[in-house]
């Protein structure tokens, strides 16, 4: 597999002296679905800004599919499609014009641009809005418009900076499906998001950035294996009391039909249900108290 994105010793010091990146190294393999996570101000957007050439680096190297952004910027740019965090299209242009003009900026003639615009606008549910001025679109439609625009030149690396921010659940799910489909067709995807369940369900590799440093960079599976415990919330139709005990597990009473149960690393759900069966306690439903990745994420940042 080729390396889609290679970052070495990347540093960024802004004019006001703030050091946003302190020499990070990162590698994303071709075909990967990669999560770049971190708290606000950690350096995620700066990293994406440098890769897409909107931010000037202070030091370090960035290669996109082998093309250096220092010496072969145009070739590197052709490989990248960027969906930024903020809306950045003309409010007065139509959806069609925004997408087709972007194709033109990449040298695609209008016939090809038109075919691709139709393909992506239909896939993203914007075809009916093609003649509408972008300012008239809802927030979710605007996000999808930015995705269509980023895909119009069919880049091999798609970078999405919080693409589902402010998007309702139904639309978010459909965007996940779309991104999964794009990734399956071979497009490498780098995603930043504050929705950790989004990263957990979509991404195969993850890097966590904090204070301008990469604090974790591993596969999602390896990261989740680090989880020492998981907390589940269980619902029961029976009436329970605060002195409820499940043998071998820590529990916490929530109300007369609900309690928390801590599953430590090494224990299995079978053991939980065996213990519950032994007590004759019927469980009608269960769910994670918090997203597993969220627990790790918070733990990693707190450990600093």
């Amino acid at each position: 597999m080729a390396i889609a994105l290679q970052i070495k010793g990347l540093r960024k010091v802004y004019d006001n002296g703030f050091e946003a990146l302190k020499g990070i190294d990162l590698e994303v393999t071709e075909g990967d679905f990669f999560a770049l996570l971190g708290p606000n101000g950690a350096g995620k957007s700066t990293t994406i800004g440098i890769v897409s050439s909107l931010v000037k680096k202070t030091a370090g190297d960035v290669h996109v599919f082998g093309h250096s952004i220092q010496t072969d910027l145009a070739a590197a740019k052709r490989e990248i499609g960027v969906v930024p965090q903020e809306f950045n299209f003309s409010n007065f242009e139509t959806v069609w014009d925004i997408v087709v003009n972007q194709a033109g900026y990449y040298g695609l003639n209008r016939a090809v641009a038109g075919e691709r615009a139709e393909k992506y606008l239909k896939k993203l549910g914007l075809w009916d809005k093609r003649d509408v001025a972008s300012r008239m679109l809802s927030g979710g439609m605007k996000r999808r418009l930015m995705i269509a625009r980023a895909l119009i030149h069919e880049p091999r690396l798609l970078i999405l900076d919080e693409p589902t921010a402010g998007v309702d659940i139904e639309l978010r799910r459909s965007m996940w499906e779309f991104l999964t489909e794009i990734n399956r067709s071979g497009t490498t995807i780098i995603l930043t998001t504050h929705y950790l369940e989004e990263a957990e369900s979509l991404c195969r590799h993850i890097a966590i950035i904090d204070g301008g440093n990469i604090v974790e960079n591993t596969s999602m599976k390896a990261l989740l294996r680090q989880l020492q415990k998981e907390v589940f919330i269980l619902d029961t139709p029976e009436v329970i009391t605060p002195d409820l005990v499940v043998e071998g597990f820590d529990t916490r009473y929530i109300d007369e039909h609900m309690f928390e149960l801590v599953l430590k690393k090494g224990s299995s759900l079978n053991e939980v249900f065996a213990a519950l069966n032994k007590q004759g306690l019927v469980i009608s439903s269960m769910r994670n108290k918090a997203n597993r990745l969220e627990e790790l994420f918070v733990g990693l940042l707190n450990a600093k």
């Binding site: 909107l54 910027l73 145009a74 990248i80 960027v82 930024p84 003309s90 003009n101 900026y105």
Partner: peptide, 18 residues
């Protein structure tokens, strides 16, 4: 300036145009 103000100048800046 309008392109800068509304930030859609970025459409141009990220493209491989000379």
């Amino acid at each position: 300036f309008g392109a800068k103000f509304q930030r859609f100048v970025e459409e141009i800046l990220v493209s491989p145009m000379s």
